[in-house]
């Protein structure tokens, strides 16, 4: 990454025209990666480290908006929506969090860590056969993150993790796509397509890709290294130490 990267925030498309332009001194860091790759575990470890470094942190996560989370859960329980309807629900959830969580936190100078960002919708919609241009236009109200960390994994390494974790679920296995009647086969096919799409997006949007097959502490070290690099470039301040808080950093 360029050491002196420009720190101006940009909208992805038309943005939110009714919002007065305000200074957004905070930092928006998105963590992307497929289901079960370990995003939330890593985010949990990032927060105390950043706070120890003196940064105030705000978390936001896909489908967690107060306005829509219940509706999305209900819709998933009903298994009855088309990809278009789902995309719009996710977009509404995203917009709610953007305006009520992300923007106010950035304005207050926080580091916002987003568990998934619009790229998740881009990846899923491509796999599900929605018009990719349409998805991107809908998310034109989004703010472009300052840094996107992509947790990359191959489907072979992902499978045992998911099985030993919370197990394969209907949606994460892409059963709604009717790729097959077998959960395992469907998971394998759906997730490899998703991962292919994430990797394509990674090069298109310049994600910082990290190897998610690494042990949890090493992966954390990698993430901290990239965040520290970004922050020093953005602030012109010395890099925070990334080996604190009991998590070792191996390079």
């Amino acid at each position: 990454m360029a050491p002196h990267r420009s720190h101006a925030k940009a909208w992805y498309g038309h943005g939110l025209p009714y919002i007065a332009k305000k200074r957004l001194p905070g930092h928006l860091i998105a963590i992307e990666g497929t289901d079960g790759v370990g995003r939330s575990a890593q985010i949990e470890l990032l927060r105390p480290w950043l706070e120890l470094e003196g940064y105030a942190v705000s978390n936001t996560g896909w489908t967690r908006s107060p306005l829509l989370s219940e509706t999305i859960n209900e819709a998933k329980a009903g298994h009855q929506l088309t990809v278009t309807t789902f995309s719009l629900l996710y977009a509404a959830d995203f917009a709610d969090r953007l305006e009520h969580e992300i923007l106010p936190a950035l304005q207050a100078g926080f580091i916002v860590i987003a568990d998934r960002y619009m790229y998740t919708a881009f990846a899923r919609n491509s796999v599900m056969g929605a018009d990719p241009d349409w998805t991107r236009e809908v998310f034109g109200m989004a703010l472009v993150p300052d840094l996107v960390l992509y947790l990359d994994i191959d489907v072979e390494s992902l499978i045992p993790r998911v099985i030993m974790g919370k197990g394969m679920d209907y949606w994460e296995s892409g059963m709604h796509l009717a790729l097959g009647t077998d959960l395992f086969d469907s998971f394998e096919r759906y997730q490899s397509r998703l991962i292919d799409e994430y990797r394509r997006l990674s090069s298109e949007f310049g994600f910082v890709s990290v190897d998610a097959r690494l042990p949890i502490e090493e992966l954390q070290g990698e993430l901290r290294k990239h965040i520290a690099e970004y922050l020093s470039g953005a602030n012109g301040k010395p890099r925070p130490e990334s080996g604190d808080n009991g998590v070792s950093r191996k390079e």
């Binding site: 939110l16 009714y18 107060p66 306005l67 309807t85 719009l88 629900l89 977009a91 509404a92 917009a95 709610d96 953007l98 305006e99 009520h100 109200m141």
Partner: peptide, 13 residues
């Protein structure tokens, strides 16, 4: 809680 954007998107859903 509705903003112009979420108002619009909920109707779109």
């Amino acid at each position: 809680l509705l903003t112009p954007t979420t108002f619009s998107l909920l109707h779109a859903v």
